[in-house]
Amino acid sequence: MSQAQRRAEPGAGGSAGRGPFRLRAEVVESEALPAVHHRVVLRAPEIAACAQPGQFVHIWCHPPAEIDRPPCDALLRRPYSISRLRPPDGVEILLRVRGVGGRLLAAKTVGDALDVIGPLGNGFRTWPDIGVAVVVAGGIGLAPVPALIARLAASGARVVLLAGAETDEKIPFRVERPRAGRATLPEVAALGAEVTFVSESVEGILITEVVALRLDELPEEGSAMFACGPRAMLKRLAEVASGHIPLQVSLEERMACGLGACRSCVVPVRCDNGTAYKTVCRDGPVFDAAEIDWERLTP
């Protein structure tokens, strides 16, 4: 009998020594979103009970009962950020369907089960006296943003979301363009953030340029920046933020184990004598931007 059918068992990884858990999670919502995006909500009590914004889950995309048969594709699990928690025990992920794994997940219907390991990695660190929290997201990098905004807003910070994409179709949320004023993402704004959205095709500006322009508005004390998106965006942000505002970035890399064991997913970090490597899956996915060796990070 597959272990996936057993109750969740605590493992060693994850933050604060809780989890990761492996469980058979029921799909309680599955919704196609505009363009190639999809929302899946899983009932995953053990994960929901301890997940932090920025952490991710590692999903076996085939039916749990078929774990004893090696598939020809989607052999490895797929990492997806926890987008937000849906009390009492739901975990929502937002995915852009890119390849076979995404297609399999998007085909799940309510009542299907998924074999999931999580929560994994270290999420965004937040602290009580953040005055202004600037969250910067590009494209599908918006996926983990709802949980982060909810956390920051609950801690009393003023949350400013600066989001961008090539086109409106490249994000998992609906864009609203009022006749007067800036484009916004109503669903995200409702979580307690002041939202600015720019698309290169409509507004013709990169979100990193917006960030650079607005950095001066921020109070010197008590501001913090959080970012998720393409590496080029994160690298540019690291330059802009350096010396001005503490920045945390969420990185992606190809994974095998997702647990920190196989050393597949390493990124270069600065250390006293040159560079060292840290794993995206266990040390990250969220890192202090100052820690990353941006010169050696592949584009």
């Binding site: 068992e9 493992g11 060693a12 990761p20 184990c257 647990l259 920190g260 064991a261 196989c262």
Partner: peptide, 14 residues
């Protein structure tokens, strides 16, 4: 060898 490192990270999953 090489699959689960030195054994730490998979602890508890089986």
């Amino acid at each position: 060898s090489g699959i689960f490192g030195y054994g730490d990270e998979f602890r508890g999953l089986a």
